[in-house]
Nucleic acid binder design. Structure first.
Lengths: 137, 137
DNA sequence: GTAGCAAAACTACCGTGGTAGTATTACCGC
DNA sequence: GCGGTAATACTACCACGGTAGTTTTGCTAC
């Protein structure tokens, strides 16, 4: 039933935190906290979440080498944006569309307001993809 | 942060149950249970889940009208497959791709093994979609 | 060396999905 | 009407995401 690999089932906050880490490369709790401008969260909420994410091997922190700035942990991502995006998107395509890309695209075209520009962009992407395929062959 | 409408954040089992109900139109706990051939679940697990889903207004059951077959509840979906699919897919597109269809399709093309047949099907869908657009204008 | 502060650790709580055992209820056949 | 059975209701438990308060720890400046 759906994908068993729960590694990439991130909640909202977890995903937001990962996005910050991907963007910055690495960051302290303070950094992450102040990047989360959306909902105002307690500092400790972010710290707790980062610790939980460390348990789940989503992030890691370097040992606090006494380089001058206290003992602040510096967190870095252990999973790539690519992998997480692929995992989450793939999970959904499996769960909702039985793995069919065509069904997925069909649904997105039908149910979302797609601007002409965006549609053109999608067509361009497909042409480009086909060219890539051909070359690889 | 992402979508607030949690109505359509279904778990694995919930989605599987909804799929059965969408397929059959309506069903008793027995029906649902025996349709879930994947992981073997206790009968009461399915019953409990259906009750929880009723609390969340995802399903409803008809009052047990004494039509002969005991008091078996007949459950039916309160939300359409369309709405749930749109909700879940939309949620993901927002969360991962900032709402961009192009980014979404780009990712799917890059990261999944897309067969030539499937690619052709996608192209067909887009042509068809454009024709629909044109007609509507 | 110690006081103060800042950071991390610990603890706690809620909601919900998932799982299932036990208790209760309601129907049906005799 | 009553007993048996089948169905629902109740209860309980775990995991995890999310949220945050309280406690402990460790650095740094004096």
């Amino acid at each position: 039933m759906a994908s068993d690999d729960r590694t990439y089932r991130l909640g909202d906050l977890q995903l937001e935190i990962m996005k910050v880490l991907w963007r910055l490369g690495s960051a302290t709790v303070v950094d992450v906290h102040e990047q989360l401008v959306g909902e105002p969260l307690a500092y400790t909420t972010v710290a707790t979440m980062l610790r939980k994410m460390e348990d789940r091997r989503l992030v890691a922190h370097d040992a606090p080498s006494g380089d001058g700035q206290g003992r602040r942990f510096v967190y870095r991502p252990l999973v790539s944006e690519r992998d997480v995006t692929r995992g989450m998107a793939g999970d959904l395509v499996e769960r909702l569309f039985e793995g069919s890309l065509a069904s997925t695209v069909s649904h997105l075209l039908e149910e979302r307001d797609v601007s002409a520009a965006e549609l053109a962009e999608v067509e361009r992407l497909i042409r480009e993809h086909k060219r890539g395929r051909a070359k690889r062959r």
